[in-house]
Design a protein around this nucleic acid. Structure first.
Lengths: 150, 150
DNA sequence: TATTGTTATACTCTATAACTATA
DNA sequence: TATAGTTATAGAGTATAACAATA
């Protein structure tokens, strides 16, 4: 049993005036659902991004990858350790610069990346079902303006 | 000296097809700038949200506040400890339910909340300068549809 | 029995300094 | 001297189980 005060919704009108408040909530919902979705193929979001970018840019070096995804170099190491351990990606020494590793996907890596993209597309269709394609393009354009302005 | 391959931008076209990718990047930019902004008055984002909601809903209980902001109850404790320690909020026993605390802002708390809202508004004007008011309303409406659909 | 606030704890994510081997 | 990858570590942020006091 609850009393009247408990049933009253808490007023967050002051926070709702801000774009960032809504953006954080929406981003959290997308993030939580995508994380749940990718668990099916035992990938985390960051691991999926890393794998997909390697598939799309074979021969990439770790430092380039870290820059592209705004990951700190040290945090990339264990992600790649895991992908290599699972035979999804391989690290091979670059002959012309023996400090660096070239990252290439294995066939299994390419296959899993394709599956991950499929699941991600399904997830977005599910979460964004109330937003049509034109509106999604608008949303992306506005968010890109925020990113580009920074 | 870098070679041609190093200078080539990493292709993230596959990830850019997803709304969530752009949303995460935009949300991160807003979040990073707001965190930097609030440091000026020694508040974290979550602490600011808690303070503002208490100012807007005096007498609120911790469990209601936790529900409203989607914080786990245990994680709220240290936030309130800090706000109480800084004399911005006070916890007083509810006479009709001696398990609960009513949360009320102090005068200093109300004043700091007003300052925080001012700084947050300035921050949004800065980060969203390339997006006019109509577009901001569109953005909020679309994100609310995502949140409501979940 | 159930709920409020609390404690302890653990897990993920992210950030920094310093090391090694190469350049 | 600088860079690529690595190690160790520390700080947020977040989640769960279990407890005391009270309902």
């Amino acid at each position: 049993m609850v009393d009247a005060a408990t049933e009253d919704a808490v007023d967050d009108a002051i926070l709702r005036q801000f774009v960032g408040y809504h953006m954080r909530r929406a981003a959290n919902i997308l993030q939580a659902d995508l994380a749940r979705t990718l668990k099916e193929i035992d990938l985390r979001m960051i691991t999926m991004s890393v794998l997909v970018v390697i598939v799309d840019n074979p021969g990439l070096r770790q430092s380039q990858l870290a820059d592209a995804l705004a990951i700190e170099r040290p945090n990339l190491v264990s992600i790649l350790d895991e992908l290599e351990e699972r035979d999804l990606v391989s690290r091979t020494r670059v002959p012309t610069d023996r400090r660096a590793y070239a990252l290439t996907p294995t066939q299994a890596g390419e296959k899993l990346a394709a599956k991950a993209l499929e699941l991600t597309a399904e997830h977005e269709d599910r979460i964004l079902s109330q937003i049509n394609l034109e509106e999604r393009a608008q949303l992306v354009a506005l968010m890109q303006r925020i990113v580009d302005g920074a």
